[in-house]
């Protein structure tokens, strides 16, 4: 099943490019793409040009970056914890980001400056991940990391529920609840600028970790005997995931299952080798989220289905399937 690494990445990149192109055509308005492109290049602010550069392009690029982050971080977390059921949000990054964003919504901070919400989300992600890291202990094993993550996630979501409970008006409840479903609609260029720094910084931190993650498949002690600085590796992954996933979730809301499913689908094609899985999963995650968002745009519905709802609808049964597979192979 293993295929050549360059060919795999080439295929995925081509697929992603075609989807990106397709996403430019997809939306409630039929867009004369050539006209829109030439007009926007000419600096005109005609309606087609505005739809292209300020509606569709940001939305698709956010799907691309957020999807890639989820795929990449899912692959990294699964490799770090050597557990195929780990997700990028396992150590608290996603729920921390949700809590941060909900705090901003609850206190109406987003009204002053739209960047407040995502920034508060990123802070929440960093805080929750740091807490999970400290809770697990510097030399804590994989199990204590997972348990710390579970505890932090539960607590963050409990605080979110508390805020929903205390929300002053039904409108506030609705605003928070809808945001939490995860959506790329109404994404603006500004969202993209807010998303990018944390995302790119996180990716940069993860780029050189392939070899260490490969060695980690030989077990923690063997990898350390082969030169891996395990505590440093963990710190780096936690920081990177907190930054990248925090940025993605803060802009898009919680979009589930992409980080879990994508590494799974691609792992057999990469010879199960963590270092080869990273780039492939990033491309795969971008493809999956962009495709899901295109589907959402095409579904004929009075209210647009949120993309987070769609990925969960597809992802949850897939997760069950994985558990059954896992049980069979360990029976």
């Amino acid at each position: 099943m293993t295929i050549n690494q360059h060919r795999l990445l080439g295929l995925l990149a081509t697929g992603l490019f075609l989807l990106l192109l397709l996403s430019m055509f997809t939306g409630s308005q039929t867009l004369p793409l050539y006209q829109a492109l030439s007009e926007s290049l000419a600096g005109s602010d005609s309606i087609p040009a505005i739809i292209l550069t300020e509606v569709r392009l940001p939305r698709s690029l956010i799907a691309l970056f957020a999807g890639a982050t989820l795929g990449l971080c899912g692959a990294v977390m699964q490799s770090l914890l050597r557990n195929p059921l780990a997700s990028p949000g396992l150590v608290g990054s996603a729920s921390g980001a949700v809590l941060g964003a909900v705090v901003a919504l609850y206190f109406g901070l987003a009204g002053h400056w739209p960047g407040t919400l995502p920034l508060s989300g990123i802070l929440g992600s960093l805080g929750a991940t740091l807490l999970a890291y400290l809770l697990a202990g510097r030399n804590g094993g994989t199990l204590s990391l997972i348990l710390a993550g579970v505890a932090i996630n539960a607590f963050a979501l409990a605080l979110v529920s508390l805020l929903l409970n205390l929300a002053p008006s039904p409108y506030a409840v609705q605003e928070i609840a809808l945001w939490m479903l995860g959506s790329l609609a109404n994404s603006s260029l500004q969202d993209l600028w807010i998303l990018l720094p944390g995302t790119l910084l996180g990716w940069l931190l993860l780029m050189r970790l392939g070899q260490a993650l490969d060695l980690l498949s030989l077990g923690e002690e063997t990898s350390q005997s082969m030169g891996v600085d395990l505590p440093r590796l963990r710190r780096r992954v936690f920081l990177a995931v907190a930054l990248a996933v925090g940025s993605a979730v803060s802009v898009t809301g919680a979009i589930g299952f992409i980080g879990l499913v994508v590494p799974h689908l691609l792992r057999p094609l990469t010879g199960h080798r963590p270092s080869r899985l990273l780039a492939a999963s990033a491309l795969g995650g971008a493809i999956l989220l962009l495709a899901a968002d295109i589907v959402v745009r095409l579904l004929p519905a009075q209210t647009e289905i949120k993309v987070g709802v769609l990925t969960s609808l597809i992802g949850a049964p897939f997760f069950l399937y994985l558990i059954i597979q896992h049980r069979r192979s360990h029976a």
Binding site: T2, R82, R208, L209, G210, Q211, A212, D214, L215, L216, S217, L218, G219, E221, T222, S225, M226, G227, R267, G271, H272, R273, P274
Partner: peptide, 29 residues
Amino acid sequence: AWLGQQREVHWPLSVETLIELGRAPHLGP
């Protein structure tokens, strides 16, 4: 080089890949 008691390998890596990992201490990331 240290060979521990446990024969743990967490993913179904191929024999060739595992032996190649033995060169990792000599290679940059």
